[in-house]
Design a protein around this nucleic acid. Sequence first.
DNA 1: CATTCTTTGACTAATATTGACTATTATTAT
DNA 2: ATAATAATAGTCAATATTAGTCAAAGAATG
Lengths: 159, 159
Amino acid sequence: MGDEMADENISDLIERYLKEILADNEQVKIRRSEIAGLFDVVPSQINYVINTRFTIQNGYIVESKRGGGGYIRIEKVRLLDDIDVLDSLIAAIGNKLSKRDSETIVQTLYNNDLINRREASIILAAIDKDAIDLNNNDLTDIMRANIMISILNRLRYEG
Amino acid sequence: MGDEMADENISDLIERYLKEILADNEQVKIRRSEIAGLFDVVPSQINYVINTRFTIQNGYIVESKRGGGGYIRIEKVRLLDDIDVLDSLIAAIGNKLSKRDSETIVQTLYNNDLINRREASIILAAIDKDAIDLNNNDLTDIMRANIMISILNRLRYEG
DNA sequence: CATTCTTTGACTAATATTGACTATTATTAT
DNA sequence: ATAATAATAGTCAATATTAGTCAAAGAATG
């Protein structure tokens, strides 16, 4: 317990390396194979580190591009102070979401000043039954849940 | 290290070069082989850059002529009014929509002041690959098209 | 021991780059 | 005029260069 550095695994080291850069920068842009080479791990371990340690819940958004000149960019975002509403809404959705419940959620977001009227309208259009219909009510509810969760995660941060 | 990775791919550099000219001019007229020579790439790469980055959806029209004195001209399109923008975007979507094209559309909406930055990112969240993924690329593109059209239609009367 | 977390690598997907071949237009020769 | 040649740009498929996914194996934890 006294010497706590010694028991870090490589994923932790990579996480620390990236977060040290992010302490001084709003974002870090890497070439996956370079970082993998630096720590002598397979490239896909970089994905593992990112998926487990740089989530939106932790205040990071990640984007990437493949092909020549490809990269992975990790960006720090400022999380909103009051995210409890979002957390509980996401938890309540689970993996299916009915049209009626989705409307309740949008209303809740509006009541909590997390979205304005126009944003509410856009969200409702995105999960409109005709848009996401799949000739299968269960699949439609799953799709609606996925889209809604994606949007709720977006609302976690400002900008 | 940190903010900048020096290595952008060449296509991005060519795109940036042309857009810098277009920032000050309504159009740019080039000789394909000259630009290719300038960036030390094969001439057909110029076509690749144009086809992937100067589409009508992004507000450019391209015309060219072969033979002696041949050229490629890229022209910024002036979109008439908001409804026209939305109509032409909807018409251009058809029944499938790739991630790349969807990003172009959102950029066009933003450039034409039809949506703000936050609305743009909500829309992108709604059509995010992970959200609408169905283990089937074709279905994902269809779903993306449906959702985008639904949102665009909403914007028509949302004002 | 059971469970969860980490590490690995084979396979997949997306994007960029290249070059051989084709098409069009202008210029030159007959 | 017409035909040949030169000077452009276009298309498409092969190859190269990245990152992503997933499941199995291994390690750590309780």
